[in-house]
Design a protein around this nucleic acid. Structure first.
Lengths: 222, 222
DNA sequence: TAATAATTTTTATAGACTAAAATTATTTAT
DNA sequence: ATAAATAATTTTAGTCTATAAAAATTATTA
């Protein structure tokens, strides 16, 4: 196109990260249109009515394109979760910030916030499918994205553990990274328990986690 | 029927659990034929070629019947896992029996045996689908069966913890049930990590679990 | 503007799952 | 022993996810 060629030649653009080209922009546009369509469908009717076909129609692409972009339906849902997670991390950092003075309370607050966020922003059905795919999905992209989310959440926990350790509430010989990952795993099993069944309440899993941490942290004491 | 009525009246049978009736026997027969077919298919070609259609054909029933009996394909696979688990529990009890003298070693051995058993008897692909369904499956039967399996495994661990506690290696104030469930969960996340990716080795997750337990159990020490 | 390359759509197919109608076999009552 | 009542399976038909290959578009580049 004349216009484009002129602009490219006329400006002294570093040619590196200038205008990403029409194709790149179209891709980015389709990506977001697909996720937007999924969110829109979820908001109006819930997971049952989110079909790839419906997403494709709203997004103005073919169903095959949805698969090409996100691999699987779970891939699209994971994109929803990923967006909501940015907000979750902010909430976690704000709400936790040095408030607890021991590991049991810290982890309790951590799980509580995550469950609450799940109920408020997405819902259990979506998480079920996403977590199931985190184990099962053959598409390598899925695992990458999901692992990154988990690591970011674990990092928030590790940061708070460092604070506790600095305040002398945790054995200074223990590596905060190791402890944080272990506690995150512990908490994550209870979160999975929470989302796996519609009738399991937030309070019940938080209580269960408290029993976990209490027992573990006391196990070695004389 | 005259024959049945005669037998029932003639014999002093308690009428309680006599002959289960033809229909019951047929059901039991179909159930086992279906699992046998699945095992047969798995042995010859692996998970990819286990289709409901193929199972149904070998078992001599329709594909709809397979669904009626086991709910989902994962339900059939879970039946395979359940059978193999009986053997696993025997192995665990035999191999663990009072050998470890601390929690870290106990849990390490526990996970090691489970991973080894998985590789030897079934395979990761089957476990992936089963664990995914343990989160996702809508059929209530699945959850029931799966939970029962987990509880039986956790019970083995709890039993060993009681031994350690009796020997004075674990804080006697801690409830073995609570501690056992917490440790089981911890171990279970690493097992899931193990099966989720074909390339993750047994040794690497056992090492990771060791870091988990070491960090947790030391966290509260001065 | 024509040639080339990238990307999407079309088309076709396999497999899991579900619902309802039709069929077959077992029980039960006569 | 036979016929009616009952229970179960099979057939049929349809939806949805997912993948592959061919065909049609559309952007880029020369």
């Amino acid at each position: 196109m004349a216009g484009q060629a002129q602009a490219g030649a006329g400006q002294p653009s570093p040619e590196k990260k200038a205008t990403p080209g029409l194709r790149e922009r179209q891709k980015e546009d389709r990506r977001s249109r697909i996720v937007d369509a999924a969110r829109q469908l979820f908001a109006s009717s819930g997971l049952e009515d989110i079909t790839i076909e419906a997403i494709a129609e709203i997004a103005g692409v073919s169903s095959v394109t949805v698969h090409n972009y996100y691999g699987t339906k779970s891939g699209v849902l994971l994109a929803l979760v990923a967006q909501s997670d940015r907000q979750l991390i902010e909430t976690l950092e704000r709400e936790l910030a040095g408030k607890a003075n021991n590991l049991v309370d810290l982890l309790e607050a951590f799980l509580d916030i995550i469950c609450q966020h799940t109920l408020t922003h997405l819902d259990k059905a979506i998480w079920r499918q996403v977590i199931a795919s985190s184990v099962n999905d053959t598409d390598p992209r899925f695992g990458k994205v999901y692992t990154a989310l988990d690591e970011r959440l674990a990092y928030v926990l590790i940061t708070e553990i460092k604070v506790l350790q600095a305040a002398g509430h945790v054995n200074p010989a223990v590596k905060p990274g190791d402890l944080g990952k272990a506690l995150f795993n512990l908490q994550n099993m209870r979160f999975i328990e929470f989302i796996a069944t519609d009738t399991v309440s937030k309070d019940s899993v938080v209580e269960a986690l408290k029993r976990d941490t209490t027992a573990l942290l006391a196990a070695m004491q004389a």
